[in-house]
């Protein structure tokens, strides 16, 4: 626990825009991320949500956990719908048909809805330059349907469609670097965050929604059910992912990199990986490969943020 979190979390608003009574699993990191994101966004926001865990748990008819206007759309088009909402607001305000109060437009999706199925719509919306925020809640597999691999599943992770055996060590491809893909679109703001660092997350969301153009925030959302950890360890594993360099927290503002939670020295990767059921089969050679790539990724990031 870092001290800033202990003494400063009280500065966050007491108001909740994501109501209790939602049906996520015990200790759901994604529900916590949604809650903190919407604390940062406040009241004047319209959210378009792709299919996924958060859609299922927050809106079983006739109940809804949403205190703000929220629309569920198909798996692939959350970004396109958000883009449409943004364009409609712009036109209606220009024509004087609605008040010119500032309304934020947000698209949300899980890793499947972002890096696999929704990538085309997201790329299009970022390219067209809609002024909106896209939040990816990345729990590193299709958890809603029972843990199938996505292209955001990390190398070596066991899922039902990338089972670990004697020959294959689970997922055989490296996690797709979605924040870099967003950076490549030259959008004004890209960041990574995790609810284990709540103030960092809230600041990034606020920066993202204030940016002049598309913004992308990639949030690591720990999934106790899919990762095979105890429900109380959600926050701990989010923190370990950052402290070991497995999921570095950084932001890219108009092309300028900055590591927001920096360490002189990273913690050993085993402390993050081996206690998780999805990684417990990892042999030393696979671990060595992961260690190498994580170190390389961390160095690259250090270099870029020093520029």
């Amino acid at each position: 626990m870092n001290d800033a979190n202990v003494y400063a979390v009280k500065t966050l608003t007491k108001k909740e825009y994501f109501a209790p009574g939602h049906r996520s699993c015990l200790g759901c990191g994604e529900a916590l991320a949604v809650r903190l994101v919407h604390k940062a966004l406040g009241r004047n926001v319209i959210t378009a949500s792709a299919t996924g865990c958060m859609e299922i748990v927050s809106s079983p008819f006739p109940l809804t956990s949403w205190e703000i206007p929220w629309i569920h759309v198909a798996f692939e088009n959350a970004a396109a719908v958000a883009g449409g909402i943004e364009a409609a607001l712009k036109v209606l305000q220009r024509k004087g048909k609605i008040s010119d109060k500032k309304v934020s437009v947000v698209a949300m999706a899980g890793d499947g809805g972002t890096v696999d199925i929704g990538l085309q719509a997201l790329s299009g919306a970022m390219e067209r330059g809609h002024k909106f925020l896209y939040v990816c809640y990345d729990n590193e597999a299709y958890m809603n349907t029972g843990v199938q691999r996505s292209s955001a599943t990390p190398f070596g992770a066991h899922t039902t469609t990338s089972p670990a055996g004697t020959v294959v060590p689970g997922q055989v491809t490296w996690k797709k670097n979605m924040p870099e893909i967003a950076v490549a679109h030259k959008i004004p703001y890209v960041a990574t965050a995790t609810p284990s660092y709540p103030l960092d997350l809230v600041n990034k969301i606020k920066k993202g929604i204030a940016a002049d153009g598309p913004a992308y925030v990639h949030i690591l959302s720990v999934c106790p059910t899919g990762w095979g950890i105890a429900s109380e360890e959600t926050i701990k594993f989010g923190r370990l992912a950052v402290q070991t360099g497995f999921f570095p927290l950084y932001e890219v503002e108009n092309g300028k990199y900055k590591i927001t939670v920096d360490f002189e020295e990273l913690m050993p990767l085993e402390q993050y990986l081996l206690p998780q059921r999805r990684f417990r089969h990892l042999a030393e050679d696979t671990l060595g490969y992961i260690r190498g790539r994580v170190a390389e990724q961390w160095e690259e990031l250090q270099k870029r943020s020093a520029e």
Partner: peptide, 11 residues
């Protein structure tokens, strides 16, 4: 300190 409050996924 409110840490329990901020980390509660169920509000």
């Amino acid at each position: 300190c409110g840490v329990c409050w901020v980390f509660c996924p169920d509000m």
